[in-house]
Amino acid sequence: MGWAARLLPVLVLFAVWELAARLIGSRLFPPASTVIAALGQEAASGHLLHNLGVTLARVAAAFAVAMVLGTGLGVAMGRWRRVDRALDSLVTGLLNLPALVGIVLIYVWFGLSEATAIAAVALNKLPSTAVTVREGARALDQGLIDMAHSFRMGRGAILRHVVLPQLYPYLFGAARSGLALIWKIVLVAELLGRSDGVGFQIQVYFQLFDVTGILAYTLAFIVVVQVIEWLALQPLERRANLWR
């Protein structure tokens, strides 16, 4: 029932797309069936898997870097006023830096490489993770931390059993919005400075005015993101919130 209800709007969308494209009959707006067929061809040739794979690897790396550094920064800013005061305007500045500017500058200054691409993407996500986690760190229940100290719990145990569970909702918020942001920015970074990946491929198709190719890759990408959301993020979040 749940799956059917989720699938129905998608099927309707595909039907409307197919119908409209056939009515319009333009090369610039191919019907869904043509796009799916192109997707099949790309998959069969092995290109799709390769490009999706490298893009996913970049997403994973940038996501991990941004989450780990952003969480550390956010906790430090939330717990120590001095750190917060020192870094607040810097973080706010980074938060408002257009993604494109960050990517271009990092490429120019540090060269076109896998590492700079990942760093450029991570830099775009890091400040928003820090700001979200800072809220969580500010909202930590000092009473529970005092309780843990009074029972002589070690630092590691306090972090694991007392602090992290309180931060989970914020971490999930940051992860969810972070993934959505990073997907988009990785494509820009690939388009500007990489020779493979979904972003690069879309640029190639753009130069050929091949809308079918663009839509095929977009479709594949959306499916992958959705599968990760269903299979990883949502179950994790449910588990962390079970006690509520």
Partner: peptide, 22 residues
């Protein structure tokens, strides 16, 4: 052993787990 004014139990752990933790 301390009993605080508010119970200060970890809400994400059961009563048994709260006791086991300390």
């Amino acid at each position: 052993g301390t009993v605080f004014q508010e119970p200060r139990l970890l809400p994400w752990r059961t009563v048994r787990q709260n006791i086991a933790l300390v």
